[in-house]
Write a protein that binds this DNA or RNA. Structure first.
Lengths: 349, 349
DNA sequence: CTGAAAGCGCTTACAG
DNA sequence: CTGAAAGCGCTTACAG
């Protein structure tokens, strides 16, 4: 857990601890050349370990509650995630309404770049960071700890073992509601297109699907559970596979909107119509779900609310208030549009 | 034009000019209570006019080239623009590669909020701002000038009279290429769904369409030019109108992807198929163009490159280098996917 | 490569 | 409501 640095982690404090003078520490901080390598390293370590942050001439009495910069970091693995804007909107909105700004960045792939990025984050000394990431390796964790700012992870994907507060959504319940909706419409042969198998959310959505089927007394035909990777392409291939089956499904529940749209395309190429011939349900409720043809019935992940909650949690952490729970899951909600319809000729096995 | 503030706009300089002592200016800056209203106002005006920025104890010699904070502001009117992520990605990428971060914000609707937002921007004292906006009223312009930082406007929409550098794309040429593509496929009755009429880009795209038609010796049937607002809904209504015509078009060129997807839906509801029955072309190349069913042929606006260019331009402005031109337009490019097909039975009037 | 000294920009008690 | 004084955190010549 990143501890808020006890105030007065000043240059002279560091200098004293390192057994050098303040000017030397200053030189290290400003990347000046003339410092002995060992001295430099010793000081750098101390700087990181103590969570030193530039504070200019905030002299005299301390600002209560630790000084605020009015800036949060919002960090993505990659900015081309389809979720990105939704989350940015929520985070920006919450930050804005408490008078703060947000610095958005992406950890680009190369390791060198990560280092540079951390350097940036450190130098802008924001009040806290919201991470949106599927894999948070332990190196990065350590580095983040050394920033000594509160961190909250938004995790639409379901991470397992984190010591940071994380915000997710109810994947299992979402899977269940999508499946029940299709069953209520009379469907019996319902396929499931899974997400990336290494992520917990994929498993939770699958289990929700199974629970829905079993509760309705329906067997899950293993042929109808096909793998996917959350992206359009894998949804398309899953669709091809399902509708080349001898006995194809009458409804498909895809674990992401992108895959659902891939299924659309596979159906279109086979001359099958949504929802007349096949019902399709997605998961996420990305903006394009509303603009697809037909508009997609899907399980909404409240990404903007998750962003807002992340900022509020950060705020509480900054104020050293108690957090109720290290992991909070917001409710998903089934949004019924036009891609699902009652099964006309109830084709039972 | 925002002038880079001559260095040493210090608290004491302001104090001298206002005829008060430094502590008084300090009090104003920190929103302390005990300052006479007139004094406060006088000082505030001076602060803004001189472009005062907190500088902590950057003592002695000046950092050459004006000190860098390593942060750019990226400002949207609203974060729910479908362009937002693309631009964010480009700007983040360019900023990242020059070791800077980006602060993303939205000017929320209320006037009070704008004030608060400006306050934020001012206090984070970024190195420059990229604005993405369709209407930049003159009040906001003045305020921005008073920030004394370089500003570049990304304007996918075609503003008219600005004294700031703006970056756009070749709307007219894009309209022409889309239209020519359809004509090359044998289409003759080609409809155009226009964008928001008050924006220049709408006019440029329309003119490109007209130019394409006339060059091919085709008359533009006024019935086939229908109004739109760039959004999905208006595209849908335009589609309904076009295909309720006695003699409907065989191809539609919509001035935005969102409207093109609306046209898809109108066609679907009428049992018409894309591209078998009707060819459709969009404009923008948003991510969802690739994931629609069928994947949409569209005119690509290089939004990410526009973002990158904006940052590079800002950089040059910061270094007081010359800018080639106050307005640069990047090339659009026709991306052919599966929503356009040759007209089988050449139906000539 | 390092420190003692001087100095900058800013802020906070403390008077009035 | 305001200023003179003291002081903080940091940095830059300047010696050695």
């Amino acid at each position: 857990m990143a501890e808020t640095p006890s105030r007065s982690v000043t240059i002279s404090a560091i200098a004293a601890e390192a057994g050098v003078s303040a000017p030397t520490v200053s030189r290290v901080l400003n990347g000046r050349g003339d410092v002995a390598p060992e001295t430099r390293e010793r000081i750098e370590n101390l700087l990181r370990a103590r969570g030193y942050r530039r504070r200019g001439s905030r002299a005299g009495g301390e600002r209560r509650g630790g000084e605020r910069i009015g800036l949060f970091d919002l960090v993505f693995n990659d900015l081309d995630s389809p979720w990105a804007v939704e989350i940015i909107r929520g985070v920006e909105d919450a930050a804005h309404s408490m008078g703060s700004g947000i610095a958005v960045s992406a950890i680009h792939r190369q390791a060198s770049s990560t280092r540079q990025w951390l350097q940036n984050v450190r130098s802008r000394a924001s009040d806290g960071a919201v991470l949106v990431t599927t894999d948070l390796d332990s190196d990065l964790r350590t580095e983040l700890d050394e920033l000594h700012i509160p961190v909250v992870v938004i995790d639409p994907v379901g991470l397992s073992d984190l010591t940071v507060p994380t915000i997710g959504c109810t994947n299992w319940a979402g899977g269940l509601s999508a499946t029940s909706h299709l069953i209520d419409l009379g469907h019996r042969r319902i396929a499931f297109v899974a997400g990336r198998p290494e992520l917990w959310c994929s498993r939770a959505r699958l289990d929700g699907y199974r629970a829905g089927m079993e509760t309705a007394g329906l067997d899950v035909d293993p042929e109808l559970v096909v793998p996917g990777q959350f992206d359009y392409e894998s949804g398309f291939r899953a669709g091809e596979r399902l509708f080349d089956l001898a006995e194809p499904p009458t409804a498909v529940f895809a674990a992401s909107d992108q895959m659902a749209l891939g299924v659309y395309e596979a159906l279109r190429q086979r001359g099958l119509r949504v929802p007349d011939d096949v019902s399709v349900v997605g998961f996420d409720d990305l903006p394009q779900a509303r603009w697809s043809s037909p508009p997609l019935t899907t399980v909404r992940q409240p990404l903007d609310d998750m962003g807002r909650l992340a900022v509020r949690t950060l705020r509480r952490l900054m104020d050293s208030e108690e957090i109720e729970s290290p992991r909070v899951e917001l409710a998903t909600e089934l949004v019924v549009r036009d891609s699902t319809a009652p099964l006309l000729s109830v084709a039972k096995k």
